[in-house]
Design a protein around this nucleic acid. Structure first.
Length: 579
RNA sequence: GCGCCCGUAGCUCAACCGGAUAGAGCAACGGCCUUCUAAGCCGUAGGUUGCAGGUUCGAUUCCUGCCGGGCGCGCCA
């Protein structure tokens, strides 16, 4: 809709420039949607912006611009107001066009071309496969999936990826945890007490039980091979020692143990996300990165380019040369690469795959990590402006007043699956994106449960269902539905035009939300649209006897339904035709 | 201590890369169902945008300082 005004305004400004009345065009034209009806449907502050550079009074400039505006079938009138705003009042036809547009484009209404087919990679969740996803991950999942939908809808070529941290110490700890539970399954005495810092969740027992049913007691080893020296004070060191003993004792069979936990948990995560409507194009294994030597290669390259040095037996990356506040270890003195090293390799790999833009979604506690990754990218000669890092705050979980501490190892957490079963996918998806991702989210389970029947998501879905109810009613009473072409000029009421105007705001909101990477804007928009529809519905009889008026009103209603359905689809929420 | 994020109605949050009289939802209060779904609508009330300065036609938005909160500052991931 903004084009209806932007075009004549650009013409006017160009004309003034050619006539030498103003020096230059503004960098960009944007319009406000005034809150006050007296300020018109769209307002431009172009005269205020230009006034300074032109050395003119804003109101004088505005008058000149208005005088230069060509006639337009969409614009009813334009006024100069306040300090120098130009307020545009549009013809009803400008709003009717939204209805026509929505009905014509159907599920593509609101789609844009901003992305221009640009290849974007979006990585999100990427939780360590050491246990089921919890409600914190759910937020990242809902946010990432919605953002992916938004970017695709605005013309980006999006690939969603999950980075599987299947290498490293955490996986070994999981393997050790599974092994101890496995021994318990066999009824064998443990070589040590089950460690506090092992994974203690029940799912570990389940994995161990499955392992036993597959392998029997084949993985059992003599107690003497597993028991270590008692009295190790540091629990982390004790854990490392335990892992080492298990690896030695099991030899080649360690791989079976390792993948027993990984495979089962990863399958669970995939299944969970899929059921949540979150789909990935690729699951990228950290181990595969290691195995093909990509990590070593990335480190070698940093070394070759002189960005590294040896100190205390470790290999350091000179991150301070690229804006970080300290240097970072790539290769530890024990010969193992750091998480950072594989992440450098992973990001280099992403760009090598040809993505114009790479978007990472990380937990907000990783924000200190951004600088060093950017530093490494620059050191590798890559443009770190192509990397975008979005931070997602963890959801703080409450049960009533009581804050629930979440620890994966202790097995004390509410899983995403449990949440979905409790409040439903629709409510969960909607709740998660109802606020900005970089804000803390207080998730009260009691409240979520209580809201399950009076949830804001139902408010929006109900508006959608009401439209279909109208259509069903029309059929029952043998009142014809609107044909493809209806006389929208019959819609002249303020509410009807206002509702149609709101439809125009859908494509605008989509563009804005995608550009800002803020899906919550869609949720807010939908609530507003639903409210306007409910108001209209209550105030106006839709199913009137006269065919032309009924057709026009039903056309408006179906346009609303199309818009709601499209918006909900972007958020991964269903749009039921009946409730 | 240093760095990043945040302080907006009783609560949870918006506010369109500086715009006109700062908006919703929930909670509170008062109304609306023999006519298309009351999972709804209408109305009332609620604010010195943490504080103090600065930039300018104009600041919740940008800058500085202070107060308060969160996170980070490992050869962990």
């Amino acid at each position: 809709m903004k084009e209806f005004v932007a075009k004549p305004l650009r013409n006017a400004l160009t004309g003034l420039v050619q006539a030498g009345k103003i020096k230059a065009l503004p960098e960009r034209l944007d319009f406000d949607r005034p809150k006050q009806a007296e300020h018109g449907h769209l307002a431009s502050n172009v005269a205020l912006i230009l006034a300074k550079a032109e050395g003119r009074k804003p109101r004088d400039l505005a008058a000149e611009i208005v005088a230069a505006l060509p006639a337009s079938e969409w614009i009813a009138r334009s006024e100069i107001a306040g300090p120098g705003f130009i307020n545009f009042f549009l013809q009803p036809a400008a709003f009717h066009a939204a209805i026509r547009n929505a009905r014509h484009h159907r599920d593509q209404f609101g789609a844009g071309r901003m992305g221009g087919g640009e290849k974007v990679q979006l990585e999100f969740v990427s939780a360590n496969p050491t246990g089921p996803l919890h409600v914190g991950h759910g937020r990242g999942a809902a946010y990432g999936a919605s953002l992916a939908n938004l970017l695709r809808f605005t013309g980006f070529d999006v690939q969603c990826e999950y980075y599987v941290n299947d290498a490293g110490r955490q996986m070994d700890i999981l393997a050790a945890s599974v092994y101890l539970r496995y021994l318990e399954e066999l009824g064998v005495a443990l070589p040590c007490a089950f460690p506090e810092n092992a994974y203690r969740g029940d799912y570990v027992r389940a994995i161990a039980a499955h392992l036993r049913s597959r392998e029997g007691d084949r993985l059992q080893r003599p107690a003497g091979a597993l028991a270590g020296p008692a009295g190790e004070a540091d629990p982390e060191a004790a854990m490392d020692a335990l892992i080492a003993r298990i690896k030695t004792a099991l030899g080649p069979d360690y791989g079976i143990l390792h993948s027993a936990g990984l495979d089962e948990i990863l399958a669970d995560i995939r299944d969970d996300l899929s059921a949540f409507g979150v789909h990935y194009d690729r699951w990228y294994s950290e181990r595969s990165l290691m195995d093909k030597g990509a990590v070593a290669a990335a480190v070698e390259r940093l070394k070759a380019d002189g960005h590294c040095y040896l100190q205390d037996g470790a290999l350091w990356f000179r991150a301070t040369a690229f804006g970080d506040d300290k240097d970072r270890v790539l290769l530890r003195d024990n010969g193992a690469y750091t998480y950072f090293a594989s992440d450098v390799a992973y990001h280099a790999e992403k760009f090598a795959r040809g993505f114009a833009r790479v978007i990472d979604m990380w937990g907000a506690d990783h924000h200190g990590y951004i600088t060093r990754v950017r530093a490494a990218l620059r050191a590798l000669g890559l443009d770190d402006n192509r990397l975008e890092v979005l931070l997602v705050q963890f959801a703080i979980l409450y049960r009533g007043q009581e804050k629930i501490s979440m620890s994966t190892r202790a097995g004390e957490f509410v899983t995403l699956r449990a949440l979905r079963e409790e409040v439903g996918n629709d409510a969960a998806r909607f709740f998660y994106v109802l606020r900005r991702a970089d804000q803390h989210l207080d998730f009260d389970l009691e409240l979520a449960k209580r809201h399950s029947e009076e949830n804001p998501v139902y408010y929006i879905q109900y508006a959608h269902a009401r439209v279909y109810s109208l259509l069903r009613q029309a059929d029952e009473r043998s009142l014809s539905r609107p044909p493809a072409e209806v006389d929208l000029n019959l819609l002249q009421e303020e509410r009807e035009l206002g509702l149609a105007d709101l439809l125009w705001r859908f494509p605008e909101s989509v563009t804005q939300a995608a550009g800002d990477r803020e899906p919550h804007q869609i949720a807010f928009y939908l609530r507003e649209l639903a409210a306007a529809f409910h108001t209209y519905y209550n105030a106006t009889r839709i199913l009137v006897e006269e065919d032309p008026l009924r057709h026009a009103r039903l056309a408006l209603c179906t346009a609303v339904a199309i818009t709601i359905a499209n918006g909900l689809r972007l958020l991964g929420v269903s749009a039921p035709e009946q409730m």
